[in-house]
Amino acid sequence: MIAFGVIAGVMVVLAVAALVPFLLRQRRIRAGAASDTRAVYRERLAELEAEHERGNLAAAGFAEARDELEREVLADADRIAALAVAIGVPVAAVSLYALTGQPGLIGATSAQQLSEQAVQRYRQMAPGERIGPLQDYVENNPDAPRAWQLLGQAYRAQEQFGDAFSAFQRARDAGDTSDGALIARQAEALLLANGRDFTASVKRLIDEALEAEPRNPLGLLLAGHAALSEGRNDDAIRHWSTLKESMPDGDRRRQQVERLLARARGNTDATAARERTGSDTGGGRVTVEVSLDPNLREQTGGDTPVFVFARSAQGGGPPLAVARTTVGALPARIALTDDQAMMDGRTISQAARVVITARASSSGSVEPQPGDLEGQSDPVEVARGSSTDVVIDRRIE
């Protein structure tokens, strides 16, 4: 952009320098006359009239001299107008481009501006097949925001959430930092990399996304979940109602949003009931700090999925809450709540105490397999604010 400005400025100066001598080459109306064209005209006209009245200038000569004077005045005005145009047009063009154009694209090569055909070609590939070629592309074209976005989406589809977050950040750095949809994708990637924990960084990105695009669907969806996780049921209802209004009647996603709204309204009713009765049943939450024993890190890859789940400390049974992250995102802080229940009617808030298990699954299966890495907590009380640590420190044989 700076180089473009310097080159454009030099070209304008050269153009004006070439035009000005030509425009000013005509003789002045009168040597030493004032610069005001009208004053010069009046002075010369007065001289002609005086000569005519003294009889030194015949009527025909007076008329001819007056016409010549008028032509000179008009020519001088034309030269001034031409000079103004020569200077004003380039300045106006540069100013208009700065206001309405895309100066940020100046200096970008055609390779960095990924063509629509290339975008469609990448999208026709499976996400796993797309990653390698896109990695090669951005290595050679690091300032290609569209390519970084496609790479981030491929990482997201492959559940490489940490890599997706980084790719979306590179897309923002290389392109428009106020793209609401892109910021929302970045917020989602960070949320998933953190085991669905709405950290301060995640919430800040959600706020940025909605500030840039107030009705962005993903931003509204995430904002509703963030509000619900903090017990702000009315805010969750507001965000999801806005999301529902933006969807056409035939959109299948409306049913999902309606279920979310029903849950938020149910939580609101339950909260009101607890306030009336003074009880505090329901709404359990356990925060888990999950880490991997350094001695086992070489036995697994960064994209290996990690399942974190809670079971009742009495009787075991199916998990009451499940979250997912990756080895590459560890250590991670993960919140297990009723929103992560696997079965309706079986939530973490129904248990007095739970045991937390974290398992790095080399096969990608939730069920334990030989070779998986696992760690487990001691029984922990279920209540808002409860926390525990789980270190993945043993191998399943």
Rank of each mutant, 00 (worst) to 15 (best):
I206N: 07
A236V: 06
R44A: 03
T325G: 02
E374V: 15
A75Q: 06
R185P: 11
A223W: 03
T199K: 05
V322G: 02
R353Y: 10
T281A: 15
I183K: 13
S201N: 12
N233D: 14
K244I: 13
D76L: 07
R28H: 11
S166G: 06
A321I: 06
Q160A: 13
D234V: 09
S110W: 12
R324K: 11
Q169Y: 12
A273D: 15
A383H: 10
A63R: 13
A310S: 02
G317D: 03
G316R: 06
L205S: 13
R79S: 07
V327R: 04
R353G: 05
V138S: 04
D344Y: 10
S229N: 07
G9M: 06
I334W: 00
F309G: 00
S201Y: 07
Y41D: 05
D393H: 02
G128K: 09
Q186Y: 09
W148V: 04
A92R: 14
V380T: 06
A352K: 15
A93L: 15
V355R: 06
E43H: 06
L373E: 00
R38T: 13
G283N: 13
Q350G: 14
R276M: 14
W240H: 02
G195M: 03
L192D: 05
P145L: 12
E289Q: 11
T357W: 04
Y155D: 01
L182C: 13
A329K: 04
L222T: 07
A59C: 01
F198L: 02
T304A: 03
L330G: 07
G180N: 14
R297V: 08
R297A: 13
Q255D: 15
A209P: 11
A200S: 14
N233V: 08
P133Y: 02
T287R: 15
